[in-house]
Simulated assay, not measured.
Amino acid sequence: MRSVMIMAKRGPGLRARALLLVLVSLLAAVPAIGLILSTGGRAEAHGTPMKPGSRTFLCWQDGLTDTGEIKPVNPACKNAQQVSGTTPFYNWFSVLRSDGAGRTRGFVPDGQLCSGGNTNFTGFNAARSDWPLTHLTAGASVDFSYNAWAAHPGWFYVYVTKDGFDPTRTLTWNDIEDRPFLSVDHPPLKGSPGTVEANYSWNGRLPAGKSGRHIIYMVWQRSDSQETFYSCSDVVFDGGNGEVTGIHEPGNPTEPVPGACTATRRTTGTWSGGYQSEVTVTDSGDVPMLGWMVDWTLPSGQKVDSLWNGAATYNGQAVMVHNAGWNGSLSPGQSATFGYVVSGTGGDGATGLPCRVG
Rank of each mutant, 00 (worst) to 15 (best):
K162D: 07
S141A: 14
N174M: 02
S192L: 15
A150T: 09
K190I: 11
V142T: 15
G239Q: 09
P258W: 04
S225F: 02
P180C: 05
T262K: 12
V219M: 00
C232V: 14
Y159F: 10
S192F: 11
V257Y: 08
S233V: 13
A208D: 08
G154R: 00
E197A: 15
N199V: 04
N174Y: 00
G194P: 04
L206D: 13
R213N: 14
W271Y: 15
S211V: 15
Y200L: 14
R265K: 15
D178T: 07
D178H: 05
Y159G: 01
F144G: 11
D224S: 11
V160Y: 03
G209A: 12
Y157K: 05
V257G: 07
W155R: 04
P187S: 02
F181C: 05
V158C: 00
Q221C: 01
L206G: 10
T245W: 09
A208G: 14
E227W: 01
Y230H: 08
F144E: 07
D238E: 10
S201Y: 10
P193D: 04
G259V: 06
P187N: 02
N252S: 15
W271A: 15
A150F: 07
S141Y: 13
A151D: 08
H248L: 07
G204K: 04
S225R: 05
P253Q: 12
W155E: 08
I176T: 03
T228S: 15
D178E: 13
F181V: 08
V236I: 15
S231Q: 13
N203A: 14
A138P: 11
P187A: 01
A140R: 11
R213L: 14
H135P: 09
V219A: 00
S141W: 12
G212S: 06
G191H: 09
T228L: 03
P153L: 05
L182N: 09
A151K: 05
D143P: 10
G240E: 10
S231V: 05
W271Q: 13
V196T: 08
L171C: 03
P256V: 04
T264R: 14
E249P: 12
L182P: 00
T195Q: 09
L171F: 01
G194M: 01
F165K: 10
S211A: 11
T228K: 02
M218D: 13
V236M: 07
G239R: 10
F229H: 06
Y159P: 01
Y159S: 04
G242H: 05
W220G: 08
S201Q: 14
N203H: 14
G251A: 13
T270P: 05
N241L: 15
T245K: 09
M218G: 07
F229D: 10
F237C: 07
N203C: 05
A208S: 11
V244W: 02
S145R: 02
H135S: 15
